[in-house]
């Protein structure tokens, strides 16, 4: 057996046992290329730093405590916004989804306000609330809310009518049907909505931190931009990408798959 086959076998078995490897290995050649390009002197170093520079800055900023602090600020903002979005969004979605009239009245309004988009609210929010936490939270809630509401409505509508009828004929009250049938039935869609919402919310947070900017990863990046420090910008991007990748690929996507697959609501 050739050495190539042996290595391949090792890789396949390794990734099968630890899927993380399959996620990390593809980045090795990219970082290597990046390193070669940066060290070749094709671009000025200040414009295009090498991986080693970014790693050094990472260590330095972590040691000084700036990076952990900013990261914490960003995450708390996102989490607060997302929680409020979920608490408001799910009941609203259930209401709109289970009443034909509410649906008719609210759906166009929802689509329109979703179309305005979070960032476009910033100027008027700044007039209303000033540069502060309220403005940031409002934007995040706004961003997270729509995907959750729209997907909850879709979820409620996807629940088969016979399921609700079955529950009613087994003696469930309207509230019980909502709690025992509609909500679990819509859950896969709700989680998809949450996943999309957080994806948009994350980006909105960065924009808000750049514009409103007092602290946070977005602020760090834009502050670095003002100082012309590419290293910190790239570090910020890597932190953002990595963090979101972990949250999305290892937490949200598995939950989405688990609810959908387990119940056989999603095939493939």
């Amino acid at each position: 057996m050739s050495i190539v086959l042996k290595l391949w076998s090792l890789y396949v078995r390794g990734t099968n046992r630890w899927p993380v490897i399959a996620t990390i290995v593809p980045f090795i050649p990219v970082v290597a290329l990046w390193s070669i390009a940066a060290n070749s002197g094709m671009f000025p170093r200040a414009f295009f730093p090498a991986p080693a520079d970014v790693a050094r800055t990472f260590v330095a900023l972590t040691y000084k405590g700036i990076l952990p602090d900013y990261l914490q600020d960003s995450l708390i903002r996102l989490l607060t916004g997302a929680t409020i979005g979920v608490v408001l969004g799910i009941p609203l979605g259930l209401l709109i989804g289970s009443s034909k009239w509410a649906h008719r009245v609210c759906w166009p309004v929802l689509l329109f306000f979703q179309a305005i988009g979070d960032i476009a609210w910033l100027p008027i929010l700044l007039i209303w609330f000033g540069f502060g936490l309220t403005t940031m939270t409002f934007v995040i809630v706004y961003t997270v809310l729509f995907p959750i509401v729209l997907n909850t409505v879709l979820g409620v509508e996807s629940v088969h009518r016979d399921l609700a009828r079955a529950a009613q004929s087994l003696g469930a009250s309207r509230m019980r049907v909502l709690w025992e049938v509609t909500l679990p039935g819509a859950l896969p869609n709700i989680i998809t909505g949450l996943r999309n919402g957080l994806g948009y919310g994350w980006r909105a947070l960065i924009a808000v931190e750049i514009i409103v900017g007092t602290s946070g990863i977005g602020f760090m990046m834009f502050d670095a931009r003002r100082a012309g420090s590419t290293v910190e910008i790239i570090l910020g991007m890597i932190v953002l990408g990595t963090l979101w990748y972990i949250v999305d690929a290892w937490i949200l996507a598995p939950i989405e798959r688990a609810t959908g697959r387990r119940w056989g609501l999603v095939t493939s």
Binding site: F27, T230, Y245
Partner: peptide, 14 residues
């Protein structure tokens, strides 16, 4: 997947 996560706003500073 990594780069599509960064898509858009995160590229503004650089």
């Amino acid at each position: 997947r990594f780069f599509s996560v960064l898509a858009g706003i995160a590229w503004i500073p650089i």
